[in-house]
Amino acid sequence: MMRTFTTMRLALAAAFAIGLASAAHAQTPAARQPTISVTGTGEAELKPDFATIHVSVETTGDTVAQASSANRAGTERVLARIQGLGIGKDDIQTANFQVFQTPPRLGPDGREIKVPKFSANHQLRIKTRNIDGVGQLAGEILASGDMTFQSVSFGLDRQEEGGDKAREAAVRDARRQAEVYAGAAGVALGRLIEIRDGSAQPFEPQPMMRTQMAFKAADSIPLVPPATIRYTANVQLVWELAERP
């Protein structure tokens, strides 16, 4: 009986030792696969499809009603002139309309100058596909003297195409960098394990002007349209590293 009890104790001790060894082995972290993380940047350039001229009609009055009524009349004259230049109704849109109190003005002697109490501002967007003639069109629009020319911008019908091409270029740039790093370190690229999307943004030069000068019908505003609109994008890619074959 004593021998049987001793044998059982030895068996239990051995089993306990094996269990501890197995637990220790299970808690040992697996060797981490080395990785490389690279940020790539890319660009794409596309020719603009249209130009948008931004103008405003500004009027004043001693009451909100007077300022708004004067603005409505001025806007009607402006719309008639713009449409007379061959711009369709669908290509003219209201960007913003607001009526606000006119801030006080002081003369050279420091005394307040009497001005109408309220101002109304109606901002319009005028779209044209005649990119090369945008300066001439802007001059003809302003010939009436009823508008303030604010700015002109250029855009694309296919906005997503520029962003996608820039993203493709960013991925190629990231892979090129990763291959250079891996080659210099004497290893190879393994699986692509992560893609972190960056941003794709268009960059377009926008000539900014503001004028209330009187223009003759034949005058042209000196605007130089951009040859292309440039999109930029960035992306972060992560690869596993492997031994060279």
Results as ranks from 00 to 15, higher is better:
Gly19Val: 00
Thr39Arg: 13
Ile53Phe: 07
Glu58Arg: 07
Thr7His: 01
Ala44Asn: 03
Thr6Val: 13
Thr6Tyr: 13
Thr35Lys: 01
Gln83Thr: 09
Arg9Gly: 15
Thr28Glu: 04
Val57Pro: 07
Thr6Glu: 02
Asn96Met: 00
Thr52Arg: 07
Phe97Lys: 13
Ala23Gln: 13
Gly88Ala: 07
Thr52Asn: 04
Pro29Lys: 05
Thr28His: 12
Asn96Asp: 07
Ala73Ile: 03
Asp49Arg: 05
Ser37Ile: 08
Gly88Leu: 08
Lys89Ile: 04
Gly74Met: 11
Phe100Pro: 02
Gln33Ile: 00
Ala80Gly: 12
Leu10Arg: 08
Phe97Thr: 00
Val78Lys: 00
Val78His: 01
Val55Ala: 01
Thr35Ala: 00
Phe16Ala: 15
His54Asp: 15
His25Tyr: 10
Gly61Ile: 14
Arg81Thr: 08
Val55Gly: 02
Ile18Val: 09
Ile87Gln: 11
Ser37Gln: 15
Ser68Arg: 14
Thr75Gln: 07
Glu76His: 03
Val64Glu: 12
Gln98Tyr: 12
Ser22Asn: 04
Leu85Lys: 07
Thr7Gly: 06
Thr52Ala: 07
Ala31Ile: 07
Glu43Tyr: 15
Ala80Ile: 08
Ala73His: 12
Ala67Gln: 06
Ser37His: 04
Ala14Trp: 11
Gln27Cys: 04
Ala67Asp: 08
Gln27Leu: 09
Glu58Val: 11
Ile18Glu: 09
Val55Arg: 10
Leu79Ser: 02
Asn71Ala: 13
Phe97Trp: 11
Phe16Trp: 14
Pro34Leu: 09
Pro34Asn: 14
Arg81Ile: 00
Ala80Trp: 05
Arg72Phe: 08
Asn96Cys: 08
Met8Gln: 08
Pro29Leu: 10
Leu12Pro: 05
Ile92Asp: 00
Ile36Phe: 06
Glu76Arg: 05
Asp91Ile: 00
Pro34Thr: 09
Val99His: 12
Ala13Tyr: 09
Gly40Lys: 06
Ile53His: 08
Ile53Ala: 15
Ala11Glu: 10
Gln27Gly: 11
Ser68Cys: 00
Ser22Thr: 06
Thr94Trp: 14
Gly40Asn: 03
Val64Leu: 15
Ala80Glu: 10
Val64Trp: 12
Ile82Gly: 02
Lys89Cys: 06
Arg72Glu: 15
His54Gly: 14
Ala26Leu: 06
Phe50Val: 01
Ile36Gln: 08
Thr94Gly: 11
Leu12Gly: 01
Asp49Glu: 02
Asp49Ile: 03
Arg81Tyr: 02
Asp49His: 11
Ile82His: 03
Leu79Asp: 11
Met8Lys: 13
Val99Trp: 13
Ala13Val: 02
Val64Lys: 14
Gln66Cys: 07
Ala80Lys: 13
Lys47Arg: 14
Thr94Ala: 04
Ala70Arg: 04
Pro48Ala: 03
Ala65Leu: 10
Leu46Glu: 05
Thr35Asn: 09
Thr60Trp: 09
Arg77Glu: 05
Gln83Asp: 06
Gly86Phe: 14
Gln93His: 00
His25Val: 07
Phe50Cys: 01
Ala70Trp: 01
Met8Trp: 01
Val38Ile: 04
His25Trp: 09
Val38Tyr: 03
Glu76Phe: 12
Ser69Val: 06
Leu85Gln: 10
Lys47Ser: 09
Thr28Phe: 05
Ala65Val: 11
Leu12Lys: 04
Leu79Thr: 03
Asp91Ala: 05
Lys89Arg: 08
